[in-house]
Design a protein around this nucleic acid. Structure first.
Lengths: 345, 345
DNA sequence: CTGAAAGCGCTTACAG
DNA sequence: CTGAAAGCGCTTACAG
């Protein structure tokens, strides 16, 4: 009567059941399972047999309560449906699983209240650590909440006034390479469409843009230097503004794939041919940019490497091996396709 | 000496601390926090004040251990970097959060061992339920593992020999609409490039393809009917085969965005113009298909609705309100863009 | 080396 | 209505 569908719905076996089954104490079995204390072969065989027979599975909640940690980390991102974050999540999960860590998804829609909420879960030890990517790095409330928190590693962007290990792509170099590529193709009238002005990733991308221009000497003009969100909507707006310019740029460097998607939409609509009418270099390279019209040249972020490093640093943090706060810059790469051609005016 | 960085590192306050602080028992405070037993205003004020003063946060592990559930569900998907699953994850997380459920990410790379592993975590009550999308529905080991499991809801595809609530898009109707659209444009020589032959989503898409053709009467020929993975690689291979045909089809219906991406790559490479040389309809519509060359017509899956329904059904399951196992079909939609034109031969 | 026992921080049946 | 106490299932310092 307590059974269901033929098989007896016995409640899960506990460590105690296992111990009793093989005439040992729970302490010994627990130690065997964790510390790998050396036990005579005969004993371990007996334990293994009992575990198999009872189908024993350790209760993770009991373990977490006792240990004070959960062997789980969280990944805080603005939007998991964004391909860049989806790729990052895949990389992070992969690395985390390798180290026996579970991953909980913490999408924020860039709302500070949700970010604070996840920080609260960390404080509550719901997760052992938080991999954090935010667009609100300039929000003092965030910085304040981060003060107490250990076991946070920032990805992509730092948070003003906070020291925490930070993993990022070398955005400055990316901006430089992109712009340099445009310059090399002969462009002299450029536009930059960036992300939020407050974000360091964004600042660094413009920084690289300016460095390349400075390096190229005189004769280069910046037709527009826009900032906004890393979003298609921002890309659309930027494209409108650029097309409305009396003296249009012949090339544009856009600081994210999403921005480029938006720009492409209005270019297509206005029949502006990418490559021939206006050259473009994107940044991220997570979408299927090779299938666009034309295939888009882009700076590729080292997403997989970033995910892995973030997890590794987190592990060190959790183990208390925390070195002084560092920020690591991972190398980007210019992927040349077909959206940059020499200007024809 | 126990402090760190200026602020005293007091250990987290517990329910006991709160109770003592306001001269009540832990039982009362716990009840107040959970059952909302009615207490005099003065009392609740005292409790609230104590909670605020001590910055009390309930320990989720203790709660989970005591309750035997974790208020967390898992989302099992082949690959989170795939935009379709990324969108699904966003939808699921959104709905889950609304009901106070956390979401842990369980990517499998379609490996059965990983799928079984996650099922193990469910058995261990690590998560309260599992939203499960698999490409291995024909694997008997999976079906066996699923026997005991309650609190599993399948998404997209059922698993042979298993009864579990299943949420899916109306793939048959999708296949029908796509094919019908091709037929309406005048195509008489069609190809179908599908997913794994063993998957019901795949079978249903071909099913709709055939229904539309049957309905159109005679004079329609099926130049190719391929199956494989829902992947770009499969799309590439399929495109190669189709282009090698003596008598090429004038239109193709491909059963996923990913497949189409692969096909586009080889079409581009061989200078086969989509729309004019070969018409195509995709399935999923999660990528930025409107930005492709040309913008792609596709069947759109109701991803957001599926995520939400899956969570709702899961909630019912968890509460034990489980109705008899159902499979729900959510409506798809034909999004007409520019990749289908009349054949010119 | 091994075990009895305390402790992790909740929830809730059981008494008062 | 309220509280003392048992229980959830682990881990591990402390004794033997």
């Amino acid at each position: 009567m307590n059974g269901k569908q033929g098989q007896p719905a016995r409640k899960n076996a506990t460590l105690k059941d296992v111990a009793e089954a093989c005439g040992l104490s729970v302490a010994t079995v627990s130690r065997y399972l964790n510390h790998s204390i050396k036990l005579p072969q005969a004993t371990t065989d007996r334990i293994d047999a009992a575990i198999a027979a009872l189908r024993y599975q350790p209760n993770p909640h009991a373990r977490s309560l006792s240990l004070g940690r959960s062997e789980t980390i969280g990944l805080v991102v603005p939007d998991i449906a964004n391909p860049y974050f989806a790729h990052l999540a895949a990389a992070v999960e992969h690395a985390a699983a390798e180290f026996g860590l579970g991953l909980v998804l913490c999408p924020t829609l860039s709302r500070t209240d949700r970010e604070l909420d996840y920080l609260g879960r960390l404080a509550r030890r719901h997760v052992d650590g938080l991999l954090f990517v935010t667009n609100n790095g300039d929000d003092p409330a965030l910085a304040r909440a981060l003060q107490g928190a250990t076991s946070v590693v920032l990805i992509d962007d730092d948070i003003d006034g906070t020291v925490a290990p930070t993993i990022m792509a070398d955005s400055e170099q990316g901006g430089y390479l992109a712009t340099r590529h445009l310059l090399d193709a002969g462009h002299r009238r450029l536009a930059y469409v960036g992300g939020p002005a407050g974000l360091s990733s964004s600042r660094n991308r413009v920084g690289g843009f300016h460095r390349a221009i400075a390096e190229a000497g005189s004769g280069i003009t910046i037709a527009a230097e826009l900032s906004g969100e890393y979003s298609a909507a921002n890309g659309r707006a930027a494209a409108e503004r650029i097309l409305a310019l009396d003296n249009r740029p012949t090339a544009v460097f856009a600081a994210s794939d999403a921005i480029v998607l938006g720009m492409l939409a209005v270019f297509k609509q206005r029949d502006v041919k990418v490559g021939t009418d206006i050259s473009v270099v994107a940044f991220d390279d997570v979408g299927p940019l090779e299938l666009f019209d034309p295939p888009l040249t882009a700076i590729r972020q080292p997403v997989a490497a970033m995910g892995r490093r973030a997890v590794e640093v987190m592990l060190a943090l959790i183990k208390g091996e925390a070195p002084e706060p560092v920020t690591e810059l991972l190398p980007v790469e210019l992927i040349i396709r077909n959206s940059v051609k020499p200007p024809h005016r």
